[in-house]
Design a protein around this nucleic acid. Structure first.
Lengths: 127, 127
DNA sequence: TGTATTTTTGCAACTTAGTTGCATTAAATT
DNA sequence: AATTTAATGCAACTAAGTTGCAAAAATACA
């Protein structure tokens, strides 16, 4: 228990997560894998991979769910507190490798912080 | 032009936004107003109010859309860069009155920042 | 090995937030 | 009052994500 079974679906989906910081949306993944596996399987495999701390999910600007490889997460505690960036021109979404400085909030116990930055990536900025 | 027409729907919906920082989800608003107006109207009125800078929208933890009163927004530029807080116990969502310090990101032009903090509010913390 | 058990997958149907087209009503303009 | 413009209701739709159940695949174990 606590170990991902390397089924064909798992291996295929994992191959979409490069070592970089780029994220992929579930919708995109479902579309690309549409003639290889069912969308339910995609959703469930992603769930499992996130439970095991291999990938993490977050919401993009339009409310879609994105996944990216974890670099410093464990099964039950996703420590990777970093911002995500979505380019409003080309749609690329990625994890930024900087730490977020969380404000101290009176009388509240903060457990998670989701930071989504939107703007233009380098490529689109220079067009 | 550029001014909200104070129709019955507008007045009713505006009355749901107190002077405080508490937010309300669209789903909740649609439900509460279900025998007063159509859900399409709720969506459209909220759109207009946001266009005019009276309220602002953001996504909560479960991907739902929430609205809260603007304190420092204008029609085309929502300056109010503050974090939102969602209590995972009672579900309350609110705007936090602190400034977010955005990290400097190389080679990217950041236009907006959405920060969602989740945890326990004061009430739920002390149960 | 073969059989029983558990996990994974596919499929179809469903749920739900949000949108759209269009006809109707209401408000503003002249 | 007549005309134009904007707001609303309604029904049907879209799309992301979920669920139940049966079939298939992987694992355990005698």
């Amino acid at each position: 228990m606590g170990v991902i079974r390397k089924t064909k679906s798992v291996t295929t989906i994992l191959s979409y997560f490069s070592d970089g910081h780029e994220a992929i949306s579930v919708v995109d993944l479902v579309e690309r894998l549409s003639d290889e596996m069912n969308k339910t399987t995609v959703y469930r495999v992603l769930d499992r991979l996130e439970d095991e701390g291999l990938i993490h999910s977050f919401s993009g600007a339009k409310g879609l769910t994105w996944y990216a490889k974890c670099h410093d997460c464990s099964s039950h505690h996703h420590q990777d507190v970093h911002p995500h960036f979505e380019c409003k021109e080309c749609g690329k979404v990625e994890c930024l490798d900087v730490s977020i400085e969380l404000p101290q909030i009176n009388n509240r116990h903060i457990e998670t912080a989701d930071v989504l930055l939107t703007g233009q990536c380098d490529d689109c900025k220079n067009l």
